[in-house]
């Protein structure tokens, strides 16, 4: 821009100079716009990296689908063992195990796009479902045994009767 003013003005060169000036200003404007956009994207990247490292990348990553539901089902399997006998617990545990299988597959497909805490939920739910399923299995076996055999012959309170008989014999 300043070099054009220092050049000697010949004939019909003013228009050319003006055209050149116009062209150069346009180019300069475009350059400034491009540099501005590049600086904006750089700052965005830096800020996102900072926030991701500071908040353990929660803002960038998703939770594994159904992670909370898997944990809740796995823990509820033992509550169903307590409330309704060994009939509803295995159903909840098997549902939790199937959902955990699909969730681990989706997590293994792209581990970077999910949070590690939600995958911990999935793992904990799987462990709880396996324990609940084992306990319900034992209870089902016990239930079937006590149905097949006569329940009066399998009386576990024999010891109490024995003690009572003992005290009766002692005239208490």
């Amino acid at each position: 821009m300043t070099t054009d003013n220092n050049q000697p003005a010949g004939f019909d060169t003013d228009d050319l100079n003006q055209e050149q000036e116009m062209h150069q200003t346009e180019v300069n404007m475009q350059n400034t716009v491009v540099t501005e956009t590049t600086t904006i994207t750089d700052s965005d990247k830096q800020s996102s990296q900072k926030s991701g490292s500071a908040k353990s990348q929660i803002s960038m990553q998703m939770r594994v689908p159904n992670s909370g539901g898997i944990l809740a089902l796995g823990i509820l399997s033992i509550a169903m063992l307590c409330c309704c006998g060994p009939f509803l617990g295995p159903i909840l545990a098997i549902i939790a195990l199937i959902m955990a299988g699909t969730a681990t597959r989706t997590y293994k497909a792209s581990p970077e796009s999910f949070t590690s805490t939600s995958f911990g939920n999935v793992n904990a739910g799987k462990v709880c479902a396996i324990i609940g399923l084992a306990l319900c299995g034992f209870m089902l076996i016990f239930f079937i045994i006590s149905l097949v055999t006569d329940s009066s012959s399998m009386n576990f309170s024999d010891m109490e009767d024995l003690y009572e008989g003992f005290w009766d014999a002692m005239n208490y």
Partner: peptide, 27 residues
């Protein structure tokens, strides 16, 4: 469990797993 599903604690899953095993042993 309810608080963990609400607030998403960092070590909530591990704590819940240990509590579940403890409860299962007691029962």
């Amino acid at each position: 469990l309810a608080l963990h599903l609400k607030f998403h604690w960092k070590h909530g899953a591990l704590v819940l797993k240990i509590m579940f095993i403890f409860n299962a042993i007691i029962i």
